[in-house]
Amino acid sequence: MAFLDWRDARHFDASRDLPCVLCGKPTPMRSHDREPVHKVCAEDWCDQHPSSNRFHG
Protein backbone atom coordinates (compact mmCIF):
# COMPACT_ATOMS: atom_id res chain seq x y z
CA MET A 1 0.00 0.00 0.00
CA ALA A 2 1.28 3.45 -0.92
CA PHE A 3 1.05 6.06 1.81
CA LEU A 4 1.19 9.62 0.56
CA ASP A 5 2.73 12.38 2.66
CA TRP A 6 0.34 15.28 2.33
CA ARG A 7 1.18 17.13 5.55
CA ASP A 8 2.01 20.29 3.61
CA ALA A 9 -0.77 22.88 4.00
CA ARG A 10 -0.98 23.23 0.20
CA HIS A 11 -2.87 19.92 0.17
CA PHE A 12 -5.76 21.43 2.14
CA ASP A 13 -8.23 24.03 0.88
CA ALA A 14 -9.98 25.46 3.94
CA SER A 15 -12.13 27.72 1.76
CA ARG A 16 -14.22 25.01 0.07
CA ASP A 17 -14.88 21.35 -0.54
CA LEU A 18 -14.96 20.09 -4.12
CA PRO A 19 -16.00 16.69 -5.49
CA CYS A 20 -13.19 14.13 -5.35
CA VAL A 21 -12.03 13.29 -8.89
CA LEU A 22 -12.15 9.59 -7.98
CA CYS A 23 -15.22 9.03 -5.79
CA GLY A 24 -17.26 12.23 -6.28
CA LYS A 25 -17.74 12.94 -2.56
CA PRO A 26 -16.78 16.40 -1.23
CA THR A 27 -13.23 16.93 0.01
CA PRO A 28 -11.03 19.85 1.09
CA MET A 29 -7.94 17.81 0.12
CA ARG A 30 -5.96 18.66 -3.02
CA SER A 31 -3.29 16.72 -4.89
CA HIS A 32 0.05 18.32 -5.78
CA ASP A 33 -1.64 19.35 -9.05
CA ARG A 34 -4.53 20.91 -7.06
CA GLU A 35 -7.00 18.18 -8.05
CA PRO A 36 -9.66 17.63 -5.37
CA VAL A 37 -9.07 14.09 -4.10
CA HIS A 38 -9.26 12.28 -0.78
CA LYS A 39 -5.88 11.04 0.39
CA VAL A 40 -7.30 7.52 0.79
CA CYS A 41 -8.77 7.59 -2.72
CA ALA A 42 -5.41 8.72 -4.13
CA GLU A 43 -3.58 5.98 -2.21
CA ASP A 44 -5.99 3.33 -3.51
CA TRP A 45 -5.57 4.66 -7.05
CA CYS A 46 -1.77 4.57 -6.72
CA ASP A 47 -1.96 0.95 -5.55
CA GLN A 48 -4.05 0.06 -8.60
CA HIS A 49 -1.77 2.03 -10.98
CA PRO A 50 1.77 1.49 -9.63
CA SER A 51 3.55 2.84 -12.72
CA SER A 52 1.72 6.19 -12.57
CA ASN A 53 2.87 9.22 -10.62
CA ARG A 54 -0.46 11.06 -10.87
CA PHE A 55 -0.85 11.79 -7.15
CA HIS A 56 2.82 11.80 -6.13
CA GLY A 57 4.46 15.14 -6.11
Rank of each mutant, 00 (worst) to 15 (best):
D44L: 08
V40R: 12
D5R: 12
H32N: 12
H11E: 00
A42V: 07
S15H: 11
P28G: 01
H56W: 14
E35L: 15
G57C: 04
D13H: 08
A9M: 07
S15P: 06
A2L: 13
D47S: 10
K25Q: 14
R10E: 01
P28T: 03
D17W: 12
D44R: 09
R10F: 00
S51P: 00
D8G: 04
L4R: 07
W6L: 04
D13F: 06
R7E: 10
N53Q: 11
C46L: 07
V40A: 15
M29A: 12
M29G: 04
R54F: 02
G24Q: 08
S51Q: 14
G24M: 07
C46I: 00
Q48K: 14
F55S: 08
H49T: 04
D17G: 14
P50K: 11
C20F: 02
L18Y: 09
E43Y: 07
H32G: 15
D17F: 12
V37R: 02
D8I: 01
R7C: 05
F12P: 00
D5T: 10
H11L: 01
T27S: 09
E43I: 09
R7Q: 10
E35F: 10
M29W: 13
E35D: 15
R10I: 01
G57T: 01
D47Y: 07
C23A: 03
A14I: 04
R16S: 13
F12W: 08
M1P: 12
C23V: 03
R7Y: 05
C41H: 04
F55R: 09
D47N: 13
L22Q: 00
A14D: 11
R54P: 02
G57I: 02
F3N: 13
M1N: 09
C23N: 03
V40L: 12
R10K: 12
D44P: 00
N53V: 06
P26D: 11
R30K: 01
A2D: 08
